[in-house]
Design a protein around this nucleic acid. Structure first.
Lengths: 136, 136
DNA sequence: ATATTTTGTCTTCTTGGAGAGCATATTACG
DNA sequence: CGTAATATGCTCTCCAAGAAGACAAAATAT
């Protein structure tokens, strides 16, 4: 399941991209437009900012804005920051690899074999989508 | 993330398929061979039996066995029983559809658009893999 | 009958998601 | 300068689900 964090984060990014200028947008405006809990959204925007997707401006007239162009924001990086690993199991993860403690040989593991294919196909989708592609 | 339930269930199915005959295999044997908690495995095998994948035989010489041929067991059905919906979000699920309560129009939703592609690519993988394909 | 094995139920423990609340820092603007 | 507006940081709680462990009951081969 996709976490609400990722869902809301994607919606917020899409909204910011659709506003198309670099003037800061307040959290309250995003939350209202997307029907999201404002407090929850704050923490999400914060992690997006920490990871270089958003900039923020404090004080009156402040808010959040996109740092890069929508066409330069790949879904692979957004998903990794918001949702975590793209792989469904650590032993097939590119960026978060971890060995299964119950599995003696990954190459003979049926779960590994299947999930490797799933990861590759998901990766293919995320690599072919930028933030710009999500705006209809 | 893939739940351990699904992971263990897949491993157990693979093991039963590799034994290649229809003689019952005891839970303890499967658990030992795959390094799985036996008690947890019991409940997993139970749901696999209830959903028509396995048969069981009680008493001495009893155990679990595959009902269908490995080549006739599709990963789509296994995943749906063990892991639940294949889609990452209910509004793009084929078998477990549910509307998002915050989303006024699915067709304009960026999350929907992206997750639809992810679901299709995952489905493609699961449809192309039977239990037989997982035995190397 | 008895030992073996599945079946069923109840309980517990831990983890993570989701969000509320409040205090603090920064900035625009009159 | 001062005040209102806004973002930031932190803690805390609530709830659900995953992951088991304990133990009694039912079925069956021998």
């Amino acid at each position: 399941m996709l976490s609400k964090k990722t869902k809301y984060g994607l919606k917020a990014l899409t909204y910011l991209a659709s506003v198309d200028s670099k003037v800061p947008v307040q959290i309250a405006e995003i939350a209202k437009h997307e029907n999201i809990s404002q407090k929850f959204l704050e923490s999400i925007l914060l992690t997006l900012r920490r990871n270089g997707f958003l900039g923020s401006k404090k004080g009156k007239g402040g808010g959040y804005y996109l740092i890069k162009e929508p066409k330069d924001i790949l879904m692979t990086s957004v998903m990794r920051v918001l949702e975590g690993p793209i792989a469904m199991i650590p032993c097939v993860s590119l960026n978060f690899y971890e060995k299964c403690d119950d599995c003696p040989d990954e190459n003979k593991c049926s779960v590994n074999k299947l999930m490797l294919q799933v990861r590759d196909s998901a990766l293919e989708v995320y690599r072919n989508n930028t933030l710009e592609d999500l705006i209809s």
